[in-house]
Computed example of a mutant assay.
Amino acid sequence: MQADSTIRVGRIRVGAVRYLNTKPLVHGLAAANPDIDLSFDLPSRLADKLASGDLDVALIPSVEFFQDPSYSIVSDACIACRGPVWSVKIFFRKPPAEVRTLALDEGSRTSAALSKVLLSERFDLKPQTVPLPIDSGFDSVDADAVLIIGDRAIHAPAGDFVEIWDLGQVWRQWSGKPFVFAAWVARPEFDTPQIAAALSAARDAGLAHLQEIAAAEAPRHRLTAEQCLTYLRDNLHFTLGPDEESGLSLFHAHAVQRGLAPPNDRWTHHDCEAT
């Protein structure tokens, strides 16, 4: 039995995405932990693999975490922001109060849900939504507003926009809380305490090597090393503390209200009013 346990622990299947904002969380993770089998995929596929049992732990978007009340967060490492996030934006062709159609970048279900929450709370809007495929250009959709994420948001498209929302900043101004985009989540039957220490250590190593990471990643994202460093250091926050948990709980409550997530007593936020 001991041998079987060693084999099981020796093959902890961990999934993450290759996005720039994930680099500090996986810095040296596989090299420092031979017990971890690290793989990469799209966020939606990671969520599917976690649900099917093909992964033990995955860095999945917060909305995906909400979908299964039996899931648990297994690390204090996360992807969050405490203000402008720079890489998640809504570009408005009409004033926000007049938006009737919203194009949603298919790359992020969490940002799509956040957009719906903020438009509802700030302007009592429930716009019709249309997809913006990952490989489609900004002008391929004729919508009043367009949500885009990642490189496309960082490199703002040319256009005549009446307003641009950085969703990290708008959420912070409205709620007073940080926003958690993704966390390390495990299936209920997975119980290996040392994974938490490994994931936290990898995060700490990443934060200690931000300049190195920024220099390596900047050319791939058409950024200068300084721009890349600023994004990773100043726009993102990688620790899930009490404030982040409170922000996550508030987001869950509003997602439940709009049918975007099922209820979960562990994440019930009894006061859904923003501070």
Rank of each mutant, 00 (worst) to 15 (best):
W171N: 03
R172E: 07
R172G: 13
Q173N: 12
Q173D: 15
W174A: 11
S175M: 08
S175I: 11
S175Y: 06
G176M: 07
P178W: 11
F181C: 01
F181T: 06
A183W: 01
A183E: 11
W184V: 11
W184H: 03
V185T: 12
A186K: 02
P188D: 00
E189D: 14
F190S: 06
T192W: 06
P193S: 03
Q194S: 11
Q194K: 08
A196H: 05
A197F: 13
A197V: 15
A201N: 03
A201P: 03
A215D: 05
A215R: 05
A216K: 04
E217W: 02
P219K: 00
P219D: 02
P219C: 01
R220S: 12
R220F: 10
H221R: 07
H221N: 10
L223R: 06
L223S: 04
A225S: 10
E226T: 14
E226D: 15
E226F: 06
E226K: 02
C228K: 01
C228S: 09
L229R: 05
Y231F: 15
L232V: 12
R233W: 01
R233N: 09
D234C: 02
D234Y: 03
H237A: 15
L240T: 13
G241L: 14
G241A: 15
P242V: 14
D243A: 15
D243I: 13
D243Q: 13
E244S: 06
E244V: 08
